[in-house]
C-alpha cells in the first residue's frame, strides 16, 4: 500500500498570486512615474523611495505589535503600492515630515487599524493624502513648474528641499493647471484667455498631460492583463467626461473641456490605479460600473463646485463608503435564478 498526502479540490497549481498582482501594478505605474520625474525632477524619485521605506517600516512595526507574521505580509507588496500612489500624489518637494504623516496615516490608520490587507474600507493612500491635504493645505499646493517652463531641481536641491527645510524658490513653482483654471475662472477670466498662458499645454497642463498619458498607458496595460477591472476606469472616465462635456458644450469659456478634465490632476492616476483598488471598490460587475461612474462624477462636482481644485481623493473615499451598499444592490442574477 502506498500512502499519499491529501488535499481538497481544486488541485491545480496556482495561476496568479497577490504579490504578482501588486508587482504588476507597480510596473504599470512606472511609465507615469518616470514621466512625472522627468517633468518635475528628482523630488519624485526621492518621495517614492522615502514613502516606500516609511511604509515598509510602519507596516513591519504594526505587524509586530499585532503579533502577525511580518515577513509574509510585507512580501505581498500591497504596502509598496500604497506608498507609490501616495508619493506620486503628493507634491514632489513636500517636506519629509509631511510625507511621514501621510504614510503613517495610510498604513497605520487606514490599513492596519482596520485589520490589514483586505479589511480596510477606505483606500489607504487616499486617506493618507486627505489627512495631509486637510492638515497642511499650503504645502499641498506647492507644485514645481514643469520641465517645459523651468529646469526642475537636481538631486542635491531635491534632498535639501525635502530634508533640509528649504523652500521651493518662487521661480520654480507654478500653479497646477487645475489651480490655474480655478483661480482664473474665479477672477472672471475666460478659458480662452487662460488657455493662452504658458502653464497650459495642448490638452491639459504642460507636462501634466504627458504624465497623465503615462498613467493611461500603464493603466491600459493593467486592464489588458486583467489585473484591474476595465469597468472602473471606463466608468470613471465617463462619469467625469460626460458632465464635463455638457458643461463645456453649454459654456465653453466658463468650463474646461472633458479632455482637460481627463488629463489634469489625479484623474488618470485615480481612474486606473486608485479607484481600482479592489479591496475598497465595489466587487460586482454592475456595482463597479456605478462605483467608477460615481467617483468620476464626484470628481467633476468637486472640481467644479467644491472648495478644492482637484477632487479625486475625496471622490474615491466617498465611493468607498458607498461600495458595500452598491454590492448589495447589484448582486447578479444567479444561473437558473428566476428573473
Amino acid at each position: 500500500m502506498r500512502r499519499f498526502e491529501t488535499a481538497t479540490s481544486p488541485h491545480l497549481p496556482p495561476r496568479d498570486s497577490v504579490p504578482a498582482l501588486m508587482r504588476r501594478v507597480l510596473y504599470a505605474l512606472a511609465p507615469g512615474a518616470a514621466l512625472q520625474a522627468w517633468h518635475f525632477g528628482w523630488g519624485v524619485v526621492v518621495q517614492l523611495l522615502l514613502a516606500a521605506a516609511l511604509a515598509l517600516a510602519a507596516e513591519a512595526a504594526v505587524l509586530v505589535l499585532r503579533r502577525r507574521p511580518a515577513r509574509r505580509a510585507l512580501a505581498d507588496g500591497s504596502v509598496l503600492v500604497t506608498a507609490a500612489l501616495l508619493a506620486l500624489a503628493l507634491p514632489p518637494y513636500a517636506p519629509w515630515w509631511l510625507t511621514t504623516v501621510a504614510v503613517l496615516s495610510a498604513v497605520v490608520l487606514a490599513k492596519h487599524l482596520y485589520g490589514g490587507l483586505g479589511y480596510n474600507p477606505f483606500n489607504p493612500a487616499m486617506v493618507g493624502y486627505v489627512v495631509a491635504l486637510i492638515a497642511f493645505p499650503r504645502e499641498l499646493t506647492q507644485w514645481p513648474a514643469p520641465h517645459a517652463l523651468a529646469a526642475p531641481p537636481g538631486l542635491d536641491m531635491a534632498l535639501g528641499l525635502i530634508f533640509g527645510g528649504a523652500q521651493l524658490p518662487d521661480a520654480l513653482t507654478a500653479a497646477t493647471p487645475l489651480d490655474h483654471v480655478r483661480t482664473g475662472l474665479a477672477m472672471n477670466r475666460t478659458l480662452t484667455e487662460l488657455g493662452a498662458e504658458p502653464v497650459m499645454g495642448r490638452f491639459g497642463g504642460k507636462g501634466w498631460e504627458w504624465v497623465a498619458g503615462g498613467y493611461l498607458a500603464g493603466g491600459l496595460w493593467l486592464a489588458w492583463r486583467r489585473a484591474i477591472d476595465w469597468r472602473i476606469p471606463s466608468a470613471f472616465a465617463a462619469g467625469l467626461a460626460l458632465p464635463a462635456m455638457v458643461a463645456w458644450g453649454l459654456d465653453p469659456d466658463g468650463h474646461p473641456s472633458p479632455l482637460f478634465h481627463l488629463l489634469s490632476g489625479g484623474a488618470m492616476l485615480g481612474a486606473f490605479f486608485i479607484a481600482t483598488d479592489p479591496v475598497t471598490a465595489a466587487t460586482t460587475p454592475r456595482g463597479r460600473l456605478l462605483y467608477g461612474a460615481g467617483a468620476g462624477l464626484l470628481t467633476f462636482l468637486i472640481r467644479t463646485f467644491g472648495g478644492y481644485p482637484d477632487g479625486v481623493a475625496f471622490a474615491v473615499l466617498l465611493m468607498n463608503m458607498a461600495a458595500p451598499t452598491l454590492d448589495q444592490l447589484t448582486r447578479p442574477r444567479a444561473f437558473g435564478e428566476g428573473r
Binding site: H11, L12, P13, D76, L117, G118, A281
Partner: peptide, 13 residues
C-alpha cells in the same frame, strides 16, 4: 501538477 499546500492570504476582493 498540483499545488503543494495552500497558504492563503486575505481576500483582496
Amino acid at each position: 501538477e498540483v499545488e503543494p499546500a495552500r497558504d492563503p492570504l486575505p481576500c483582496i476582493r
